[in-house]
């Protein structure tokens, strides 16, 4: 039984949409970061599915770059979160509306 690539793409689209919804609705800044990770994962799934569909490796190589960028983003972003928590005593994105305190 062979699975059509469109199944993977539909799943990827659903996950990306849920990531967008989470990005808009979550109020905790760490949860907002996690929804970005969810969107990156959805894109990775689409990359691998396309890579298999076209029998080319470029998509899989791009998945590595996406993972590297996601790791770097998580490191810098969580450092910003720690600084935000130290300076403002809140992780709510709606209470953090000034660049400088």
């Amino acid at each position: 039984m062979i699975i059509p690539v469109s199944y993977y793409l539909v799943l990827s689209g659903i996950l990306f949409g849920l990531g967008v919804v989470a990005f808009i609705f979550k109020r905790n800044v760490i949860a907002v970061f996690m929804s970005i990770e969810l969107m990156l994962n959805a894109v990775n799934l689409a990359f691998v599915a396309f890579s298999r569909a076209h029998q080319q490796l470029d998509g899989m190589v791009f998945v590595f770059f996406v993972i590297v960028v996601a790791a770097a983003e998580a490191a810098v972003g969580l450092a910003i979160v720690i600084m935000m928590a130290q300076n403002r005593e809140s992780l709510n994105v709606e209470r953090v509306n000034l660049l400088k305190l």
Binding site: I2, I3, S6, F50, A53, Q55
Partner: peptide, 9 residues
């Protein structure tokens, strides 16, 4: 047309 292309599992 990509939907009709089959991903090899």
């Amino acid at each position: 047309r990509i939907g009709s292309v089959v991903a090899s599992g």
